[in-house]
Design a protein around this nucleic acid. Sequence first.
DNA 1: CCTACCGATCGGTAGG
DNA 2: CCTACCGATCGGTAGG
Lengths: 202, 202
Amino acid sequence: MDSPSSVDARSTKAPVNASAVRNAALTLFAERGYHGTALSQIAGELGIRTPSLYNHMRSKQDLLRDLVTETTEQVWAEYESAIDGVEDVVERLRRATRVYALRHATHRREALVVNRDIDCLDEPARAHVLELRRRHALAIRDLIAEGARSGRFVEGESTLGAFAILEMCVSIARWFREDGPQSADAVAETYSRYALRIAGLR
Amino acid sequence: MDSPSSVDARSTKAPVNASAVRNAALTLFAERGYHGTALSQIAGELGIRTPSLYNHMRSKQDLLRDLVTETTEQVWAEYESAIDGVEDVVERLRRATRVYALRHATHRREALVVNRDIDCLDEPARAHVLELRRRHALAIRDLIAEGARSGRFVEGESTLGAFAILEMCVSIARWFREDGPQSADAVAETYSRYALRIAGLR
DNA sequence: CCTACCGATCGGTAGG
DNA sequence: CCTACCGATCGGTAGG
């Protein structure tokens, strides 16, 4: 005998709700991109028909917007929290990088969507998200510049250094596997070490 | 008076050929992604109708395949050429990174498409491209490991280090501007320095 | 290079 | 939650 009632793609048991729809969308957007994912595929993943999705969402664009804005806002909040109360600039850069790297190992799908489909967002959501990302890059740049001024770092190209550090972390989402040889924490630790080296820690 | 004959999106002069179609596709794929680009948009960019494209290509998938496979093969060839005849492991890593970083500043559109739409490729092209990329990552990993064994580098996590170096270079395509403050050569030079730091050059 | 057209599929709505 | 259906658009072909 199969599970209770059918042999759907999904576990056939859990009731479909808004959260399940968002989760299925997240998985498929991460796998195939926003334009590469049809609502019929999201529905199929949940074992329902396409029109039924509209009981749990307003539109495909809404799914993307919520997902990307919430993720980006969390990234900024995590950055602020990570450096809060820490005075040493080296430690601030270490913690900022560690939390960013950790997120990209533990929230791979969100990271892939944010970095691939940001331009699929309608305004004003797109501008809002880009502004948060810009703020994050500038904050990292300032950490490098401050450390260089105070003689803790040797790196003078703080803008390039910030991009290098952030984007190297983003890429973790592309290769990290939960069942791989390294834990998310271990990867985050190693990458925060790389960040300090890029900054030119003396 | 306008240009010779019309006010098309394109310069109205140059005859459309296979190379012009590939170039328009490259620009639009880089901007909106493979699934986000319609053949009608490529045609519009060239000032012709969609069916006319078929005088210069076989299919949309063909455009993507040629573009991605040629680019990836060039990347591997450039890597081999960059380290050819160079014995010192530090200098090999420096040159391998510099040529890879430089390519991502000078071939931004190709890099964006390769890194965004690789999974849109049909087999066997997809597997071929992934194999070339894997080979490249393993080669960088081996350089780091060899340098660590010989005491030139301190980095032990050669696999993570290789990913960090390569992906940091890939990201150049996302922010580099030809009319920006730094030349492509200067960026490549700075990034190759970051690579040696990630590897833990003593 | 074009017009005319193909079947398929898209996101979304009507109306239970 | 469904069936039935909407107009729009997709990649691609026929046939000049």
